[in-house]
Write a protein that binds this DNA or RNA. Structure first.
Lengths: 228, 228
DNA sequence: TTAATAATATGATAATTATCATATTATTTT
DNA sequence: AAAATAATATGATAATTATCATATTATTAA
């Protein structure tokens, strides 16, 4: 059982408000889990009786729609918490969380989170701020889907992926998404996504080496995305 | 200065957790305001140093995009609170709130809300749940925009408007939105929205009397919207 | 390694939606 | 009430995007 005190990722989430005693208590009740790439942490409809703290790896939060398309709502990375919304709302999960790479997560039971809410106002406030941030992001994502073209959204998403998850030594995007997943993020058909990537490749904005994507002209991508 | 104790709308928001003493204290620090139809309660970029409790009327939360289109994120009605997100995030408002009809609102200063957070856990929890609900709605709205056609979204929105805001004696939707605003809600061009309303009218799903919209076949609208 | 399967790519086409033009009808102002 | 303005309506067309078909290339399983 790892010590939460020595875990650096907690500094990046609401958990940073916890004091030494709270961290010791947390270390005793949390459970650690390994999730292999492609496997779910939880799925739509599951009762999520606590929150997951991501130690390593990244996952997608997505929802499968009637027509079989998987819309990706958000990517969640190490340091962030997962499942707060369902836990707080006392509702089954609205979205599925699936690992995009091998992950390590710690599960913190609901009773523990609620007791931290009671005893640590800063923790509650942090959690509220996080959820408010998610809400703002969701609103902006909505406007983006509604008012930007697929091309603009693809450009925007490529920039986001590089700036949020970085790149490998060869310059390619570190986070590995299939074309289908990328399409699911920007809300379009897989073929449309592939076609536009091809276009971006032809005009030298990006490079495509197998499934890898290398951003070559981020300034121009930003201009296309209209990120001012 | 009205007494919050005797105000029924508080029962419909997070404020329902407040006890008698808290309500008396609230009545002393709140300020009441009248907002005429079409006027803003706050605008994008404003610092919202508290929350508004809506006593009467409905407003739209929207964001003006670069191309001049006003995307409506959400309608907020009597009994609900307004401005929590900005207040909690300590950020300027991300959206504008504009009255769709004459409104009465009470402004509760931030200091008061924070003190209620500190002293009343149920209030904090209610507020969290509300924001989580908003987040869920935003996610679902996003998926709807991304995966449904304009026709499906229009049907969905008409059903929502009737079920949420009711209808007048003549059967027309009680909430009065211009075609432009309706288009802004479903994320399409005004002309497209008008054209589809025309189509719905021709096949008898709705009636159009001037600007008024009368839902004639809600079951079929639901089927089109794919609300199961 | 070879076969089987899945992912990526591209062409052809259809469907959806936006845009521009222009009526028509309301609403407001003078 | 008449003129001016704004909102609603509809046609014509262009642009965007989805869908279906079919290669081509990777990846996995046998």
């Amino acid at each position: 059982m790892g010590k939460c005190e020595q875990c650096i990722v907690r500094e990046f989430s609401s958990l940073k408000a916890l004091n030494k005693d709270e961290l010791i208590k947390l270390a005793e009740c949390k459970t650690s889990h390994t999730i292999k790439k492609g496997n779910p942490i939880f799925e739509e409809g599951d009762i999520v009786n606590g929150v997951y703290c991501i130690t390593t790896g990244t996952c997608k939060l997505s929802k499968l729609s009637a027509n079989g398309k998987d819309q990706i709502i958000k990517l969640v990375k190490a340091g962030e918490l997962l499942g707060q919304r369902s836990m707080i709302s006392d509702e089954p999960a609205n979205l599925s969380a699936v690992a995009l790479e091998d992950m390590e997560v710690c599960f913190i039971p609901k009773s523990e989170v609620l007791s931290m809410f009671d005893n640590n106002n800063q923790f509650s406030m942090n959690m509220m701020k996080t959820i408010c941030g998610d809400l703002k992001d969701a609103d902006e994502h909505m406007i983006s889907i509604s008012q930007k073209t697929v091309k603009e959204r693809l450009a925007e998403t490529l920039v986001y992926l590089q700036e949020t998850f970085g790149k490998n030594e060869d310059g390619s995007l570190h986070i590995q998404l299939s074309r289908e997943e990328l399409a699911g993020m920007i809300g379009t058909a897989t073929e449309s996504c592939i076609r536009l990537l091809s276009d971006f490749n032809k005009i030298g904005l990006i490079g495509l080496i197998g499934k890898k994507i290398i951003i070559k002209d981020i300034a121009k991508l930003k201009r296309i995305a209209d990120i001012v």
